[in-house]
Nucleic acid binder design. Structure first.
Length: 571
RNA sequence: UGGGGAGUCGCCAAGCGGUAAGGCAUCGGCCUUUGGAGCCGACAUUCGUAGGUUCGAAUCCUACCUCCCCAGCCA
């Protein structure tokens, strides 16, 4: 399983699609012959940051619905604000969408439409529907009124058309400084919907744009650009998140005034996940202030971070297909995402042996120089994955956690005098415990039963536990990075008065282990490959690996019944 | 407070006038050469609250309560 592959999205007819209200609307529109039965959507990210799991939900919806109904879905970068947008983000967005398994029909930019948008603005000015306003930002806010009081009309609201035309052209020509004027739609300063109180259509920004360079110094606002961009492309179902509900009337207003193709907007609830922050602004802060190593830090909820962590596109897609699409503001539990991760990894990840915290075991009655090969199953969930052989010898490493000198009730693993099975190896019995000067257990002296090769006793006796191991002489040293939630609070934004989300950062979200011992086949592990370390969890080879010295990221642990029992007994 | 959205099990979510799907989590049991996986079982007399209409209401009506969004020249 390489992380570089882009797995294909299953065909739409594979099983019953889970329905949702937007899908129902589309089915009804097709039935009634709206737009000739044509379905077109679009995924319109602003290239001002990396895509995250919340975007994945939108991507699955936008591309998924188009695919299911034989329609098109464009990727459109909503680049109307040069102060925040960069090419780096554009490239990352494209890569992430494809990695998730989707391919856009058209690749467009809102900036492709700047000229058309400009001409339409002139049309609206001529129709008396837009005017150049000289109020500054503070004044515009004052004139807008409040939630309960109507606004006041700008003193420039009734400028003659000719003067508006002249001023707007000069705005475009660069005659005025940033912030000195705006072009506004002339709608209704008393509207209960604040978006209708003469919204700004264009602002002056003398700034280099990542695609248009210095061609423009006036840039359209979201409300003026988005609906028309949809319309130009022929988008039939423009799907966005709930907070744009208030913008829909304005979206429709521009389209109606211009008399262009009537794209329609539908809103769904944005994803919220426990222990996770999904605000690009805040994620940017984590990156810029160095709380994480970058946008693809494996603790980040970004697509690139999850990819590096070891998530699969299938797991993310399955999650998105199952969380549902509604209009309720909920909080999905992280454990639900993790369920789909484990489900996919369990089916596909190859099993290997790795010891994170090694404890030396010497098998006293095993020949000094003998090395046997034992056969191990690569994936019990998939017979086609085959088997491999593992070297077995006198000196091994086992997990420190798999031995207790004074075993508590229900602890079935190794303890003095107790016999356990080494997976695919032999039964061993602990005969002696060797400690260092500080009383720490540093080595176990054991004996093995030669009759139990492969893991079964001919006399039929049973052991309560099977543990994993690695042959000391053949093992490879590795670094393993253990991750846990980036935030210790279920809601990272739930903070004490005067504090911000950074105060909820989990100081133990990253633990780096070195001197881990992995089986020999992992010596040249390929970055991006995902494995299950038996009895421990799923791990993904990090790009920091070097030949002979692999680095693994723990994607997620296996469900741990013993840990649960231990937790309970502590309470 | 004006406007807009939303309230069904701990979480997500079906349901759209005929008597509460499913998944996650949780708890039991079986099975097991991963305390993994798998399998079996338990888990809302009740749908924000209070009234009303109806033979019958989560679904219709009324009022109230709670939460989210909007006062960027961000998207």
């Amino acid at each position: 399983m390489s992380s570089l592959e882009s797995t294909p999205v299953p065909a739409a007819d594979e099983g019953a699609e889970r329905s949702n209200f937007i899908r129902d609307i589309i089915i009804e529109d097709i039935r009634s012959g709206k737009h000739g039965g044509r379905v077109q959507t679009r995924f319109p990210p602003e290239p001002n940051g990396y895509l995250h799991i919340g975007h994945a939900k939108a991507i699955c919806l936008d591309f998924g619905l188009a695919a299911e109904f034989g329609g098109k879905c464009n990727l459109r970068l909503d680049d109307t604000n040069p102060s925040k947008e960069e090419t780096e983000y554009v490239e990352a967005i494209k890569q992430d969408v494809q990695w998730l398994g989707f391919q856009w029909d058209g690749l467009y930019y809102a900036s492709d439409y700047f000229q058309q948008l400009y001409e339409w603005a002139i049309q609206l000015i001529k129709a008396g529907k837009a005017y150049v306003c000289d109020l500054n930002a503070d004044e515009i806010r004052e004139y807008r009124g409040t939630l309960t009081e109507p606004g006041r009309e700008s003193p420039y609201r009734y400028r003659p058309v000719e003067e508006n035309l002249d001023l707007f052209q000069r705005m475009k020509a660069g005659e005025f400084p940033d912030g000195s004027r705006t072009l506004r739609a002339k709608i209704d300063m008393a509207s209960p919907n604040l978006n209708f109180r003469d919204p700004v259509m264009y602002r002056i920004l003398h700034m280099e744009h990542h695609r248009t360079g210095d061609e423009w110094c006036i840039y359209p606002m979201y409300d003026y650009a988005h609906g028309q961009s949809d319309s130009i492309e022929g988008v039939t179902h423009s799907i966005c998140t709930l907070e744009f509900d208030n913008n829909r009337p304005l979206y429709n207003w521009f389209i109606e005034q211009l008399g262009i193709f009537p794209s329609q907007q539908y809103e769904f609830d944005r994803l919220s996940l426990t222990y996770t922050l999904l605000s690009k602004r805040k994620l940017l802060r984590l990156v810029q202030e160095g709380h994480v190593s970058g946008w693809d830090d494996p603790r980040m909820p970004t697509i690139s971070g999850m990819r590096r962590r070891g998530y699969t596109p299938e797991a993310i897609r399955n999650f998105c297909a199952n969380i549902g699409v509604s209009r309720t503001n909920g909080m999905t539990q992280l454990s639900y995402l993790e369920h789909f991760l484990r489900e996919d990894l369990n089916r596909h990840a190859l099993r290997v042996n790795a010891v994170l915290r090694p404890l030396r075991v010497v098998i006293e009655n095993y020949p000094d120089d003998l090395v046997e090969e034992v056969e191990a199953v690569n994936n019990p969930e998939d017979a086609a994955a085959g088997t491999r052989s593992l070297p077995f010898s006198k000196v091994l490493y086992i997990e420190q956690d798999d031995f207790r000198e004074d075993p508590p009730k229900q602890f079935f693993r190794l303890a003095p005098g107790r016999e356990v099975r080494l997976r695919y190896g032999y039964f061993i019995t602990c005969r002696d415990v060797i400690k260092d000067g500080d009383g720490r257990v540093v080595e176990l002296r054991c004996t093995y039963d030669p009759e139990t090769r492969g893991g079964n006793a001919p006399d039929g006796r049973k052991v309560k536990s099977t543990i994993h191991w690695v042959s000391a002489a053949h093992s490879v040293d590795a670094e393993v990075r253990l991750y846990s939630n980036l935030f210790s609070n279920e809601d990272p934004d739930d903070v004490a008065e005067g504090r911000d989300f950074l105060s909820n950062l989990n100081p133990e979200s990253l633990e780096v282990l070195s001197g881990c011992k992995v089986e020999p086949g992992l010596r040249e592990a390929v970055p991006g490959t995902r494995y299950q370390f038996e009895r421990l969890g799923y791990f993904c080879v990090d790009r920091d690996s070097e030949p002979g010295r692999p680095v693994f990221n723990r994607t997620i642990g296996l469900k741990d019944t013993w840990a649960k029992i231990e937790q309970k007994s502590k309470k």
